[in-house]
Amino acid sequence: MYDGGKIITGIIIGLVLLAFPIWYTHGTAPPRPEVKLPVKEKQCVQPKAYMKTNHMQLLDLWRDSTVRAAKRIYISDDGRKYDMSLQNTCMSADCHAKKTEFCDQCHNYTGVVPYCWDCHIEPKEPKEKSEEKH
C-alpha cells in the first residue's frame, strides 16, 4: 500500500463519520415513549390508528376549514360532531389536557417540534413536570 498513513487516516475519518449514529447511541436504545390517554373521553375524533399517523393532516384540514372557509363543525366518520379547534377541542380539559404527557412524548422521541405553539397557547399545567419542557 502506498501512502499507508494517509489512507488509514482517511478510512478512519470516513468510518467515524459514517458510524455517527452508532457511537452517538452507544448501545442503549431509549424506551418507546408512553403517552397518557385521557381518562374521561374514550374515543378520539377519529379511530386511534388513523390519529396516530394522520393527526397532523387532520389538524391541517381543521385549520384550513376554520380559517379559510369559516366552517367550525367537524363530523367524524361515525357521526360525532366536534368544534374544529386545536386549543378547545384537542387540548380541552377532558382530552389531552397535558401537552407534556401526550403530544410532547411522541414529538420529543421523533424529534418533531410543531411550530403551532408559536401562536397557539398550550394548556396550563401544574408546575411539577416543568423539566419536560423543551
Binding site: 455517527f20 449514529p21 452517538y24 447511541t25 436504545a29 431509549p30 420529543n108 422521541y109 421523533t110 424529534g111
Partner: peptide
C-alpha cells in the same frame, strides 16, 4: 434522517 437514528437529536 439522523432523527431516526439518534436520541436526543443532535
Amino acid at each position: 434522517h439522523l432523527r431516526f437514528f439518534t436520541e436526543p437529536m443532535p
